[in-house]
């Protein structure tokens, strides 16, 4: 067993142990922090498995934005936890345990009975990389070969924003999401919120641009841009836009809307829905991705900001 294998086994054991602890620990806050650390470590494993695209998404969502959503939920639950200390009765817990165990067993069984050479389209994807003029096979699959899935996924993102907004009270409808943050304008938070976003915006655009030929893409870039926007909001340097604002709604539908228009264009001028003309494949995909990165950044930031609470 080589030294690298020893590290890998040790890393896997640590991640497994942390996962079990995160589930078992009673306090919500500790579990959340455990989950954030878990996301960071899983990103390491994805890099080791040569799935850098997945590692980027895991680092952005699991270690970053997802952790913040959970932290917010834990902070809200905290007050409720103190009052609702009642425990479910033995029967309910037994049923829940049986259900969880059988799902875990079924998942384990499904993995064990997979054929040794799983059916894969990877060689076909690699062979057709030239069709779009982009070298990153993941971007090829997401934007061209399985473009339909990606488009619908962005529509789902839009639906989640609608879901969050619908939690607003009638009085606050059309107002600004989240509390109004105020921080010392000469304090360390305001300083960081001025220092970090310029670098973060460059990294976000770089993620989008490099996604054509190397790991990266609109989602990772959008996640970075969203976090930079939220940083400025949390430092009180910017305010969340009112949800009734036209430009905000335009940005929210820009990505899936442009995707749909290009897809319908493929139906009129090309072979099928979402079929790109070969000569224009790369510029079209890049155009969709530029619109998409703005949509994703706005969507993720608004999901974290929460339901409208204040009048504009």
């Amino acid at each position: 067993m080589s030294i690298a294998t020893v590290f890998e086994v040790a890393l896997a054991a640590v991640v497994l142990g942390l996962a079990i602890w995160t589930i078992a620990v009673p306090e919500t806050y500790s579990a959340t922090v455990g989950f954030v650390a878990y996301g960071l470590l899983v990103a390491l494993i994805w890099v080791r498995l040569d799935a850098v695209d997945v590692a980027l998404t895991e680092a952005a969502i699991g270690g970053g934005l997802g952790g913040v959503v959970l932290l917010g939920a834990a902070a809200r639950l905290r007050d409720a936890e103190a009052t609702a200390a009642e425990r479910p009765d033995r029967f309910t817990r037994l049923i829940a345990a049986i259900l969880s165990a059988s799902i875990a067993a079924a998942l384990g069984l499904a993995i064990l009975i997979l054929p040794d050479h799983a059916p894969t389209l990877a060689p076909v994807v690699a062979a057709n990389a030239g069709a779009t003029g982009m070298a990153n096979p993941v971007t090829n699959v997401l934007m061209a070969f399985r473009g339909m899935d990606t488009m619908l996924e962005k529509v789902v993102l839009l639906l989640t924003v609608v879901g969050v907004w619908s939690l607003a009270s009638d009085r606050a409808w059309g107002g600004r999401p989240g509390p109004h943050h105020e921080a010392d304008p000469h304090g360390v938070l305001a300083f960081l919120a001025r220092l970090l976003p310029p670098a973060g915006i460059v990294v976000g655009i770089y993620m989008l641009w490099t996604g054509a030929d190397h790991p990266g893409g609109a989602f990772q870039g959008g996640a970075v841009l969203a976090s930079m926007w939220l940083l400025a909001i949390m430092a009180g340097l910017a305010d969340t836009p009112p949800v009734s604002s036209r430009w905000l709604r335009f940005i929210l539908v820009a990505g899936p809307g442009l995707f749909l228009v290009v897809g319908l264009g493929g139906l009129c001028f090309g072979a099928a829905f979402l079929a790109y003309p070969v000569a224009f494949a790369k510029p079209l995909i890049l155009g969709i991705e530029v619109a998409m990165v703005l949509t994703i950044a706005a969507t993720l930031a608004l999901l974290l900001a929460g339901a409208p609470e204040r009048n504009a």
Partner: peptide, 25 residues
């Protein structure tokens, strides 16, 4: 794997962000 540097970049940016959110929330 040169792209591992990009993952490190994302971690650096978002870990800072998570810690600020922790303090705020």
């Amino acid at each position: 794997v040169p792209a591992a540097v990009d993952v490190a970049l994302i971690l650096a940016l978002l870990a800072t962000f998570a810690s600020i959110a922790f303090v705020k929330k």
